[in-house]
Write a protein that binds this DNA or RNA. Structure first.
Lengths: 135, 135
DNA sequence: CTCTTTGACTTTATTTTCGAAAGGAGTTAA
DNA sequence: TTAACTCCTTTCGAAAATAAAGTCAAAGAG
């Protein structure tokens, strides 16, 4: 993991569909050399996958939210199995140290979907809702 | 934006370095047809970019945090210009409705970097720190 | 000091993919 | 019917990826 590898990760972060030839040029390598490095970085688990940045609003999900989860006592399992079933709304469930137990990153297609979700969620945990206005 | 387009976005979300030929096969199209659709989706702004999922811990950033930002009064500009200068640590700055004004998503390479950042941050805003233990 | 090994790179050659162009099928409307 | 449009496939030359072979420098052993 030298400077060239870091540059490769930087370049792929900003555009992962770049060709190996172009990537090579940007880090002063030939295409095969760049491809070999990328493969090694993948094998080391530093690159876990290739994805897109999608505009959620244009995909019909105009509500982007963070939900702090508060669970009394030590029975986290009912909550955890609940959110596993709700994967279509949930982007990430962070276990955190601090005020609350978890921080849920979610998106919803409508107010109704959000409302329904919160009603269900309330059976398992208390929450504090934050709606993202802007990035 | 029909079912095929949604499938394309799904496939590219899970692997954006897939070839147009393979993408086409997965959505029952030829390579040129798939490429044409992807281009349209890009032009519509639904796909904003192509990126990687990098393992932050293996990149040497073992502290992943959320920081709730509280600003008294209406002078957000000093804070906003401060975080623009701190881009190397900051993944996202969400403007939110709810308890706090902003939610900062950050990663730090060390406790010292975090400490230094918080000392600086405190000149512009009050905060509440949450450290991510697990995803 | 010389020989060998190793690792990272380049060069070359082959296979695969891309991307532009042309054309066909289905739909809509005059 | 014909024209215009959309969306697709087929075709083919250009570009990129990939595999294989060769180069070079550093490190270690005899």
């Amino acid at each position: 993991m030298d400077q060239t590898d870091k540059k490769i990760i930087e370049e792929l972060s900003s555009n992962s569909r770049i060709t190996m030839k172009e990537l090579g040029e940007r880090v002063h390598l030939t295409a095969p050399a760049a491809a070999a490095r990328v493969q090694k970085i993948e094998e080391n688990g530093v690159i876990e996958g290739y994805s897109i940045k999608a505009n959620q609003a244009k995909l019909g999900c105009f509500m982007f939210t963070f939900i702090n989860i508060y669970i009394e006592g030590t029975h986290h399992l009912p909550y955890l199995s609940f959110i596993q079933k709700q994967e279509k709304y949930i982007i990430n469930n962070y276990k955190i140290s601090g005020d609350s137990c978890y921080l849920l990153e979610c998106r919803f297609p409508s107010n109704e979907a959000l409302n329904q979700f919160l009603l269900e969620l309330n059976k398992y945990a208390n929450y504090k809702l934050s709606i993202v206005i802007n990035k």
